[in-house]
């Protein structure tokens, strides 16, 4: 397996967005691309990442291989890569180590690292194709701000989506608060748009702590999509451009 990405910053941002939820994960390499699925230890949330092969500058994978990686170790290695460096990832069939090569844009600096891989027994979950009742698209910076603002007030947030608005409400020890967003009427910048597609109104409660973990993915995409259905896990998606891939989180709801 060998793959080369022009910008190491993408991998660095992906890692930042998942390393607080997951400690070890299998990076699954196949001819289609690189993917990862992992749950947090309490099985409340799940991360699903896909990088399509066509998003790479070069991608070669003769047969599927899983690279079991400790994310703290990978973070240490990626700290040695500049944001604008290209990154080449290599692994052989034995699958006991992975090789990382970082090259500066001017090609005058080359650094190489080898990471020991581990055997990870991970449970793969089948996520059914779902027709969600409510889909909200909003700026990821707005999502991050709401989660961090409301997170200081309480542990859970009630998300209510209607045709007219999406409302985030918190009820905590010191008091309560809410933020309500209406779909944008005037659109200056596509990245500032709030869009709501609704089959039926949804009103659900989630842990703010997890929503805040997911907000770490905000640097990956200008917009975020929240998909909700009653008594079903919330899906939060950050897309890396059109053809590149995505990072999705799933969060189990609080239920009666």
């Amino acid at each position: 397996f060998e793959a080369r990405l022009t910008q190491a910053s993408l991998i660095k941002k992906i890692l930042e967005a998942i390393k607080d939820l997951v400690t070890d994960a299998n990076f699954d390499c196949s001819p289609e691309g690189l993917s990862l699925q992992a749950m947090d230890s309490s099985h409340v949330s799940l991360v699903s990442m896909v990088l399509h092969a066509q998003g790479f500058e070069m991608f070669r994978c003769q047969r599927a291989v899983s690279l079991g990686i400790n994310l703290a170790s990978l973070t240490k290695i990626l700290k040695c890569a500049g944001n604008d460096d290209s990154i080449t990832l290599r692994a052989d069939e034995k699958g006991d180590k992975a090789e990382f090569v970082f090259e500066s844009q001017s090609q005058d600096r080359l650094s190489e690292f080898e990471l020991k891989l581990m055997d990870i027994d991970s449970e793969h979950l089948g996520i059914p194709d779902t027709k969600y009742s409510a889909i909200v698209e909003m700026p990821s910076s707005e999502y991050r701000r709401i989660c961090s603002d409301l997170g200081v007030m309480g542990d859970t947030v009630r998300i209510s989506v209607s045709k007219e608005s999406v409302k985030f409400q918190v009820d905590g020890d010191i008091g309560k608060g809410s933020v309500c967003l209406h779909p944008s009427s005037v659109v200056d910048k596509p990245t500032e748009v709030v869009k709501i597609s609704l089959e039926e109104p949804v009103d659900m409660i989630f842990s703010i702590r997890y929503l805040n973990y997911f907000a770490k993915a905000a640097p990956l995409s200008d917009t975020v999509t929240l998909s909700l259905s009653k008594d079903f896990p919330l899906q939060i998606e950050f897309k890396f451009g059109e053809q590149m891939g995505y990072l999705r989180y799933y969060l189990a709801p609080k239920i009666d």
Binding site: H43, L46, H124, L125, G126, P128, T156, A252, K254, D256
Partner: peptide, 14 residues
Amino acid sequence: MKSQSTLLSFFETK
């Protein structure tokens, strides 16, 4: 009082 569910009750293990 609402309690936290887990994903295992919604998604099947492959």
